[in-house]
């Protein structure tokens, strides 16, 4: 290939990427590894009171190139972290001489369906628990190991490993019974206009999904794909880190990952995606 051809090709690639970045294929279907059929659009749950005509995975709002990365695990950079977590799964840690595998054997069996129902009520502790909270409780109480940082690399990788076992299953978090008050708290937060820009989650993700805000193509803010591999920072990202960044960007005093407020918001936002597939680790920009 001569130099002119090479640069022309490079230019074409840049141009086609530019076009792809601007225009997402919102009619695409997602099948992973030619095997796992993902539900990327589903009827809106009744408790959304008609605010959304249907629920849509964030995958639909991304460029063709980004969409493709999630179609095959060999192309999905998030799967590297799943492999790392699988090593961690078998590693003994803490005073009790246990690994995850000591109690939970093969995650493919023991963890199937788990991601789909979190956050959920823990009756013994009397609290709503996210998957990260449950992992840390296991580490402290069962293993005698140190807690991981709520959004640390170890944590997001382990969440991804556990989530992979539920890929393709519908998100199905409970919103009633003992979690009802927490769910209501999360709902109230979703519609609260925080910060100097006075923006709620709903302003962008309910009223304006599909529209552009500067270069950002707004999605419904669904979290069925979390933890998500972002091309922007080339790592897995926890939902609470995304919440933190969103609230910060309203010029507000944000909340901490793992705070009761973000646990409530996670429960509520997860419930808005009931019926979409567990996708983690998904790929976004």
């Amino acid at each position: 290939m001569n130099k002119t051809t090479a640069s022309r090709l490079a230019l074409t690639l840049v141009l086609s990427f530019g076009a792809g970045a601007a225009l997402a294929d919102e009619n695409a279907d997602l099948v992973v590894n030619e095997e796992i059929e993902m539900t990327v659009r589903a009827p809106a749950p009744a408790y959304l009171d008609g605010h959304l005509p249907e629920i849509l995975s964030g995958w639909l709002f991304r460029s063709d190139e980004t969409q493709d990365l999630q179609r095959d695990d060999f192309d999905n950079p998030g799967m590297i972290f799943v492999d790392q977590a699988l090593d961690q799964w078998a590693m003994v840690d803490g005073s009790e001489g246990k690994s995850c595998a000591s109690c939970h054997d093969d995650p493919a069996d023991s963890m199937a369906g788990v991601r789909a129902v979190y956050p959920k009520w823990n009756a013994d502790a009397g609290e709503v628990r996210t998957l990260a909270m449950q992992i840390n409780d296991c580490r402290e109480t069962q293993m005698g190991a140190k807690k991981w940082g709520y959004t640390s690399g170890d944590m997001t990788a382990m969440e991804a490993l556990i989530s992979v076992q539920s890929r393709g299953m519908p998100v199905n978090v409970a919103i009633d019974g003992p979690v009802a008050a927490t769910w209501e708290q999360g709902k109230e937060m979703y519609y609260t206009r925080y910060g100097q820009l006075e923006l709620s989650c709903a302003n962008c993700h309910e009223d304006n999904y599909g529209n552009h805000i500067r270069a950002d193509h707004l999605s419904q803010g669904q979290i069925n794909g979390f933890p998500v591999y972002r091309l922007k920072n080339t790592k897995l990202n926890a939902a609470h880190d995304r919440f933190k960044g969103c609230v910060r960007d309203t010029r507000a005093e944000t909340f901490d990952p793992g705070s009761p407020e973000f646990v409530a918001l996670e429960l509520y936002v997860a419930s808005r995606g009931n019926g979409l597939s567990v996708e983690a680790p998904s790929v976004r920009n």
Binding site: G195, N208, R248
Partner: peptide, 24 residues
Amino acid sequence: TMMPSFYKTSGYIRPGNAFTGKAG
């Protein structure tokens, strides 16, 4: 309206210090 108020300085919910995420 969703439009931010460009000449207003108080009455906010969890006002922040610009885009730092810290309290203002």
